[in-house]
Every structure is written in structure tokens, then in C-alpha cells.
Amino acid sequence: MAVANTIPAERVAQNKRSGSLITLDDLKVEYLSPRGPVRAVDGVTFDINPGEVVGLAGESGSGKSTIAMAILRILQPPAVITGGQVLFGGRDILAMSDSELEDFRWREVSMVFQSAMNALNPVMTIGDQIVDAIRAHSRTSKSDARQRAADLLDVVGIEKARIDSYPHELSGGMRQRAVIAIALTLNPPLMIMDEPTTALDVVVQKEIMYQISELKEKLGFSILFITHDLSLLVEISDRIAIMYAGQIVEMAPARELFEHPLHPYTQGLMQSFPSLTGDKKRLTGIPGSPPDLISPPSGCRFHPRCPKRFEMCDKVVPKLAEVSPGHLVACHLYPEVRAESQNHGD
């Protein structure tokens, strides 16, 4: 396949040396508003290893897209990054100049967002859009770029003959494939996918998920996969982080998280999805709704909705702590978390 194995070996080696491809360290993002700052991302730390799929789940408004946009440095005012670092291959993305960013985006990290229609230019054929993306970043002749565009369409499962189609001539699933083709243009080692299948029907979603997973196997890129659909995430992710109100409340290998959720919020989410199999048991969901991020609840942000809260929950902020190998949780029910949180005070 034309696009395979073209990620510079030395870069992969470099990433492997530092252990992870990208590391978010205590990232904080606020949106300024007349009522005060919205603390949309409040101290988020995690990393993604080369070739790994990390899933980010959480309800709408929990800060998932803000994290994606912070990594790509495409946040617009009133958003402000107020703290933390995002390290990529040893460099802090948050400290990059505009010209460094130009080079960084698409080459190192590319993105696939929920609305393929917004990502595509309605008055250009998909072939021309891919050709443009190729030629914007490398010195390639028009005919070579077009050949490569056709190859890319083939890679994502669009017939080469559709190269001169306009976005509106394609179905929703085809458009999302075209967006994935554009994201693949420069073979970046990391792809951020923010709800890439949310607007699609379940049968088409399955096709796209299968395609993504195949491409990942073939090309070896890492994915930060964002969705509110936990079942989807369990299928595709190696590790999953659960966000609540701007913070990660639990992170674990996918299967471990699915089988042994530790945080009461994660447990509540598991109680929110009717299943196609097994006993028809009554589900409870989670009472209440997510908090206002301008004045989030004190202590643990989930405490007002938590069925297991006790006296320290509204006083002490729980810190994310490892309670079993690779399984991190931020909940005072666990002694490791209590020890960690009280040491640091708050």
C-alpha cells in the first residue's frame, strides 16, 4: 500500500525512547465568560504510547473536545490555556511558535471531527482537497499528488472513480472516509478522532470503525479516540480515560475498565446502557446532571450525584492514584487515593 511504513524510523525510535508519543501534564484550559471562567479542562494528565488507541469518554460538556483542540493548538478565544504542558517528542506543543505549529499539525498530529461536512469544502472535489493537503506540505507534482490522492481514497475504502465527486454527492459514511483520507495525507503518528461516527447510523458506524481499526493495524499510528459511547470505546481502545466535569476520574486498560469499573461515575455510566444480551435488568442511570463548570462542586466534582459519597467527598479533592497495575482512579473510596489526596492537601 502506497502510504504504509513511511513514518520516519528515527522519529518512532525517538518516541519509543521517551516511552510515550505524547504526554499531557496537568493541562488546564478555561473559557472566559461574563459569569467567570469556565474551567473546562482542569488538571488533565495522561499519555499515549506509539501505536496505542486511547479512548476518552465522558458526557457532553466534560471537556473532551477542549482537550483535542488544546493538543492541536486550535483553541480560539475565549479559550485560554492556563497551565500544564503537552509534550510531543520532547517538545512542548504549548510553547511552539506559529511556524513550528504549521509544521506540527497534519505532519505529527491530524484530526477527524464529528461533522465531516464541516471539515470538507463543499465547492471542491474530494480529490482536489486531498491534492491540496498533499501539496501544502510537500513538493509534489500535481499528477503525483493526484495519484496519491487516488491511493488514499482506495486505502479508506472509496472507489478511485469517486475522486472527482463533490462532498454532497457522497453519503455521510463516504464523507467521513474522505475526511480520514485527508487526515492520513502525511502519515502522522497520532490521529485525534473526536466523535468520528456520532452522526452516522449504526451500520455505517460499524464499517467506519472497522476501517479505522484496519488502517491503524496497517499504518501503526496512535489514536486519541473521543466519544460519549462507552461500548464503542471498549471495542477499539487499548486504554480508556473517563472524564467528568473537566477532569479524568478513572483510567485503565479497556477490558479492565469495562469489567471492573472503580469510580462510582464509571459504574453509573455502565448502568446507563441497555444491553442487547443477557437478563433484562432495570437500569438506573445517574441521577442529576453534570455541574456548571464556572462554580464546580467542592471536593470531588461528582459528589452531588454520587450514591457512595461520604463526609470527606465534598471537602477533599481526590487525586488520580494507581490502585492496581495500570488502573488509576480518583475516588476517596480507595485508600491509595485518600493517602495521595491528603498528602497534597487542597
Binding site: V202, Y210, V234
Partner: peptide
């Protein structure tokens, strides 16, 4: 059957399966 097979299933996982049917 197609509809049911497309519902995400955390118990089974994606990767072991054959390619899903295509079509619109």
C-alpha cells in the same frame, strides 16, 4: 441481522471479526 451485528458489543470486540457488509 445486519442491524443487530452492527451494534457495538464490548463483550466481543471489533478486531476478530470479518469485514462488515458495505452498502447504502
Amino acid at each position: 441481522k445486519l442491524l443487530l451485528s452492527a451494534v457495538p458489543n464490548p463483550h466481543a470486540g471489533l478486531r476478530t471479526e470479518e469485514a462488515p457488509s458495505r452498502g447504502e
